[in-house]
Design a protein around this nucleic acid. Structure first.
Ligand SMILES: [Zn+2]
Ligand SMILES: [Zn+2]
Ligand SMILES: [Zn+2]
Ligand SMILES: [Zn+2]
Lengths: 139, 139
DNA sequence: GTGGGCATGAGAACCATTCTCACACATCGG
DNA sequence: CCGATGTGTGAGAATGGTTCTCATGCCCAC
């Protein structure tokens, strides 16, 4: 039964919880962990189960609406990002994130992989630092 | 007491366990997780407590002898690496890793950060793919 | 409006990593 | 060589992020 479509559409449903998670992410400028988002939703009044927050984030990642970043402690953080391929410039202090898209680094990755006979290449490039605002306020 | 040296030396002791962990890493060509290393040591006969494996790895990282990489599942993997700054080209299949050092990407990261007023910059660059051997054996 | 089935949520389960603490032993002054 | 000293070890408990379970809720196509 169901539709014999080529690629089965997951038929994503619109619920209060998923809407709340995405809405909250829309008004964040940096990466936020699932735990943080769960706490923020609770404070804001739009209580959502922790498991549901994780499921919503996973779905949004699958749909390409979010980018994921692993901290040094292994905790995952999420951010509402543009759908085009890009990397990030993240402030270690306030978390402010700037999307960076640059052809040179893409070519570099492809070239390095090709030089060593690697195929099916992907890459992970992130830059961390202290933004101007934090550097000024730093004392 | 002790030495009034500039930077206090932690006085690292030489034990069978730490020697075994480093020796095992020396003969690995790719990144290995702490759990894997623990199992390998057990199989090999040089039994070492899991907690000790973690402590030895942490010490080796602090000494700059190892590089750490976080997998998509958040699990940390370790590899005996050269002390000079470099990045990695890792085979998703067999784990084989090639160290890559290239000035252009270093300059790129510095430039991107500077353009946005970021200071105290660090970066994280890794390339993943399928190595030639795995690609050939892949079918 | 109704029914089927995905979504939800509280809590248990999972699992990598860290902590606890009693005991072992590498190191070193004597 | 020997014994004191304090770091290193290890089994198991604790931690904490993430996932799973399953009974119940409710979105949405019909
Ligand atoms: Zn992004
Ligand atoms: Zn890229
Ligand atoms: Zn390395
Ligand atoms: Zn670099």
């Amino acid at each position: 039964m169901s539709s014999p479509e080529t690629t089965e559409a997951p038929a994503r449903r619109q619920t209060r919880q998923r809407t709340a998670v995405l809405a909250l992410l829309e008004q964040q400028d940096g990466f936020r962990s699932a735990q943080d988002l769960h706490a923020l939703l609770r404070d804001r009044g739009d209580a959502v189960g922790l498991a549901t927050v994780y499921r919503a984030l996973q779905a949004l990642v699958d749909d390409g609406l979010l980018d994921v970043l692993r901290g040094d402690d292994g905790e995952a953080s999420y951010r509402r990002c543009s759908p085009v391929h890009h990397h990030h410039l993240v402030c270690r202090s306030c978390g402010t994130t700037v999307e960076v898209a640059d052809a040179p680094v893409e070519r570099w990755a492809a070239r390095v992989a090709a030089e060593h006979g690697f195929t099916d290449v992907s890459h992970q490039v992130e830059v961390f630092g202290t933004c101007a605002a934090c550097h000024a306020a730093q004392r």
